[in-house]
């Protein structure tokens, strides 16, 4: 069985480190690490949402970046209308643009979930390679759709004039504030996923990954549970997209590129599939390596490749397996 004490300790140390990071970075005079770790938290959130379907549900979605992009565009488009002063739509009701985070962030999740519902409903009729290819195809469609959005910058995307607004004293332009907002959302999402994966719903989804035939013989209809997991995952990715738009103050089609989807898979595999916390570690490892190795050579992925290979070959449950102990699912 997995060593629960060790895993709990690892989570607490990780959390303590992340809580202290802005102070450490400022004290060391390396404030840009706050920005870098904000990205890590945001990509960590996207990777955790992918782990929900990839690690727990066995659904190898190769189009997860699309949902991140959808969330980012939700923020970007509404913000653009505020800047432009034009309404988002005038029929059947008039909707104005907005930068209120309490509106646009849930909306980003909703849009991520909606797109996941449509894409998942079709893709989940297939399995294996076909599923990978269909999710990839849908993501590419959205990628080119975004390029086609002339009004919203097309290929050039949208530069955000303003960040999302929370309640007044909280100013997301302050990088430390924004960092803690991202950390809070990541922790909340992890807590929700933790409950989910251990609930009846989570058991049904995991059962469908391990032995779908047996699940049907027991009387389960796996499709509906897999689709629900896919939608929840899409909503999580949408939220990370909303944060990404705020972090970069920019939204563009590149967010949805298939390379991005691949990077998210790498983060999950590197960190440890089906571990929830692992993908956060995976995101950190990936983005830190990118940061450090890119100083050495622009072909930094030549170094990343062997590292990834090493981890996959020697650690069945990725980096998190090393940290929290190798082991099978709990229970």
């Amino acid at each position: 069985m997995r060593d629960h004490g060790r895993e709990t300790l690892a989570v607490l140390i990780g959390l303590a480190f992340l809580l202290a990071l802005p102070f450490l970075a400022e004290a060391a005079g390396k404030g840009f690490y706050v920005t870098l770790f904000t990205r890590i938290l945001i990509f960590g959130l996207a990777a955790v949402s992918l782990d929900l379907i990839l690690g727990y549900g066995g659904m190898v979605s190769f189009g997860h970046a699309a949902f991140v992009g959808v969330g980012a565009y939700a923020v970007g488009i509404l913000s653009w209308h505020v800047f432009d002063g034009s309404p988002l739509m005038t029929w059947p009701v008039t909707l104005e643009g907005t930068e209120n985070a309490f509106v646009v962030w849930p909306l980003a999740m909703l849009m991520g979930g909606l797109f996941a519902l449509v894409i998942g409903a079709i893709s989940l009729r297939t399995t294996g390679i076909s599923f990978i290819m269909i999710t990839l195809a849908f993501a590419q469609m959205l990628f080119y759709l975004a390029i086609g959005l002339r009004k919203y910058g097309g290929e050039d995307g949208i530069a955000l004039y303003n960040k999302s607004q929370l309640v007044p004293p909280i100013d997301l332009f302050d990088r430390t504030t924004f960092y803690y907002v991202c950390l809070g959302l990541l922790v909340a999402f992890l807590a929700v996923c933790r409950r989910l994966t251990r609930s009846r719903f989570g058991m049904a989804v995991q059962g469908a990954r391990i032995n779908e035939r047996r699940m049907k013989a027991l009387g389960f209809s796996p499709y509906r549970y897999k689709l629900t997991a896919f939608v929840i995952s899409g909503a999580g990715a949408g939220l990370s997209g909303a944060l990404l738009a705020n972090a970069a103050e920019f939204v563009g089609p590149a967010y949805m590129s298939w390379q991005r989807s691949g990077e998210l898979i790498v983060m999950v595999v590197l960190g440890g599939m089906g571990t929830l916390f692992g993908p956060v570690a995976g995101a950190a490892a990936f983005l830190l390596l990118e940061e450090w190795l890119a100083d050495l050579t622009e072909h930094w992925q030549i170094i990343l490749g062997p590292i990834l290979l090493f981890v996959v070959v020697f650690a069945r449950r990725g980096l998190w397996g090393w940290v929290a102990g190798q082991g099978r699912e709990d229970r």
């Binding site: 409950r195 989910l196 251990r198 609930s199 009846r200 719903f201 989570g202 058991m203 049904a204 389960f220 549970y225 629900t228 709990d330 229970r331």
Partner: peptide, 11 residues
């Protein structure tokens, strides 16, 4: 099985 919160192992 759309029960998302309670831990199945403790049910």
């Amino acid at each position: 099985s759309f029960r998302f919160w309670r831990r199945a192992a403790h049910d």
